Computed example of a mutant assay.
Amino acid sequence: MTHLMSREELLTHELERLRAEHGDLDAAIEAMQGNPLSDQLAMRRLKKRKLALKDQITRIEDELFPDIIA
């Protein structure tokens, strides 16, 4: 039997994927920062991608866990 994922399940799965990619980028950037011969343009691109991922992560978290203002 095929199980169709709910929107929440899809968002949760996407959130996990984005968090993993964000962590991978963080590790790559850290490794590049420790190497004086690192490609600065490549590092800037990784940092830009990391920021974009953070924005996506925040957007999904806000949808999954909205703030309840009382």
Results as ranks from 00 to 15, higher is better:
39 D>A: 04
4 L>I: 11
15 L>D: 05
63 E>K: 06
62 D>M: 08
53 L>Y: 08
22 H>M: 04
28 A>H: 12
28 A>P: 03
24 D>W: 10
63 E>T: 07
67 D>F: 03
27 A>M: 12
25 L>V: 08
2 T>Q: 10
19 R>V: 09
44 R>D: 06
57 I>E: 02
68 I>N: 06
50 K>P: 01
63 E>D: 10
43 M>E: 13
26 D>R: 07
25 L>M: 15
15 L>I: 06
27 A>Q: 11
7 R>H: 10
52 A>G: 09
13 H>K: 13
4 L>S: 09
29 I>P: 00
32 M>Q: 12
13 H>C: 02
3 H>E: 13
17 R>G: 02
48 K>D: 07
42 A>K: 15
46 L>M: 14
33 Q>L: 12
18 L>V: 07
45 R>G: 06
61 E>S: 04
12 T>W: 03
3 H>R: 15
14 E>M: 14
56 Q>D: 14
35 N>D: 15
4 L>V: 09
40 Q>V: 11
12 T>C: 10
65 F>L: 08
54 K>R: 13
47 K>S: 06
64 L>E: 15
62 D>H: 03
67 D>V: 13
70 A>H: 12
42 A>R: 15
43 M>I: 15
69 I>G: 03
41 L>A: 14
43 M>N: 02
46 L>E: 04
33 Q>K: 14
49 R>L: 08
28 A>F: 06
34 G>I: 04
68 I>K: 13
1 M>Y: 11
7 R>M: 08
11 L>D: 13
64 L>S: 12
33 Q>G: 01
59 R>Q: 04
2 T>S: 04
8 E>L: 02
38 S>T: 12
70 A>Y: 11
65 F>W: 12
38 S>P: 00
24 D>V: 04
66 P>N: 01
57 I>L: 01
44 R>L: 04
59 R>K: 06
26 D>T: 08
53 L>A: 06
48 K>E: 00
19 R>N: 13
3 H>G: 04
24 D>E: 14
67 D>Y: 05
27 A>H: 09
35 N>V: 05
64 L>D: 15
54 K>F: 03
19 R>K: 15
6 S>A: 10
2 T>K: 14
33 Q>C: 06
64 L>V: 12
13 H>T: 14
54 K>D: 11
45 R>Y: 11
30 E>I: 00
22 H>P: 02
35 N>Q: 07
8 E>G: 00
35 N>G: 07
18 L>G: 03
4 L>T: 10
35 N>H: 09
12 T>P: 03
61 E>A: 01
